[in-house]
Amino acid sequence: MTRFEFIVDGPPVSQQARKRGKGNPIQDCKKTVRQEAEKYWSSEQKTATGLVMLQITYFYNSDQMDIDNIVKPIQDAIKGLAYVDDKQVSDLLVRKRNLLGDFRENMTSTLTEGFARGNEFLHIVVIDASDQEVIT
């Protein structure tokens, strides 16, 4: 795998969601993320067996979420598809950006699709991890 990219209509579900409300919002989130990921997965792609970098960007209308709480359900949802086990995630970049921001240059077709939908969404990218040198 070199690059796997997909979008999920949002807002995302926080890992904290299991502590309140009815049902199991975490399991519902994982199911949705997995279904969306499978739509973008091609038969030519190979599940990564080495270290990977996971990039998650939450494009929002109203910022009400701590982004650190959205990672684990997404990691779990794409385990076995993008990578064998989430222990392979050696690098993680999580961002949130307002949909009205001015950053729409050099976008991939997948990211362009997310903006075209006009709603909050998650843009998720899995790539092979770069070298493991520690930068200070």
Rank of each mutant, 00 (worst) to 15 (best):
I56W: 04
L51G: 14
D85C: 08
D63E: 11
T49I: 10
D63H: 11
Q55V: 12
R34D: 05
K72M: 12
I26T: 05
D76L: 12
T32V: 15
I26N: 08
L51C: 11
A37F: 07
D85W: 08
V71M: 00
K46G: 03
M65W: 02
Q45W: 04
M53N: 10
T32D: 11
K96L: 05
I67H: 10
R97H: 08
K79P: 02
T57F: 04
Q27R: 11
D63I: 05
S42V: 00
V89D: 07
C29I: 05
T32C: 08
I74L: 05
E44N: 05
R97T: 12
F59L: 08
D63G: 07
W41S: 03
L51Q: 15
G80A: 12
G50L: 08
W41M: 01
W41G: 00
M65T: 10
C29K: 02
L81P: 05
K79V: 01
Y83E: 00
I78C: 07
K31E: 13
D91K: 15
T57M: 08
K46F: 07
D86P: 06
K87N: 12
M65S: 11
R95A: 13
W41V: 02
Y58K: 06
I67Q: 05
F59R: 03
K87T: 13
D85A: 12
S90W: 11
K46Q: 10
I74M: 07
S43E: 07
D28G: 02
E44L: 06
L81Y: 06
T49H: 07
S90L: 12
T32S: 09
A77Q: 01
Q27D: 12
D63V: 04
Q88W: 00
Q55A: 13
K39M: 11
M65A: 06
D28N: 09
S90Y: 10
Y83T: 03
E36K: 14
K31D: 12
Q88G: 02
L81C: 07
T57Y: 01
K72D: 14
Q27G: 06
M65C: 08
M53K: 15
D28Y: 02
R95E: 11
K46M: 14
T47W: 02
Q88R: 01
T57G: 02
Q64H: 12
R97I: 14
Y40S: 03
Q35P: 08
E38G: 02
Y40V: 00
M53T: 14
Y58I: 06
Q45D: 11
E36Q: 15
Q45L: 02
Q64V: 07
Y58M: 01
T49F: 05
W41R: 01
S62Q: 15
L92P: 13
D28H: 01
K46A: 06
Q45Y: 01
K72N: 14
L51T: 14
P73Q: 04
T32N: 12
S62M: 14
Q64I: 12
Y60P: 03
V52D: 06
Y58E: 04
A48G: 11
Q27F: 07
R95G: 05
S42A: 04
P73M: 05
G80T: 13
M53F: 10
L81S: 06
W41N: 00
D91E: 14
G80S: 08
T49V: 15
V94H: 08
A82L: 03
A82G: 03
K31R: 15
S62F: 09
R34W: 03
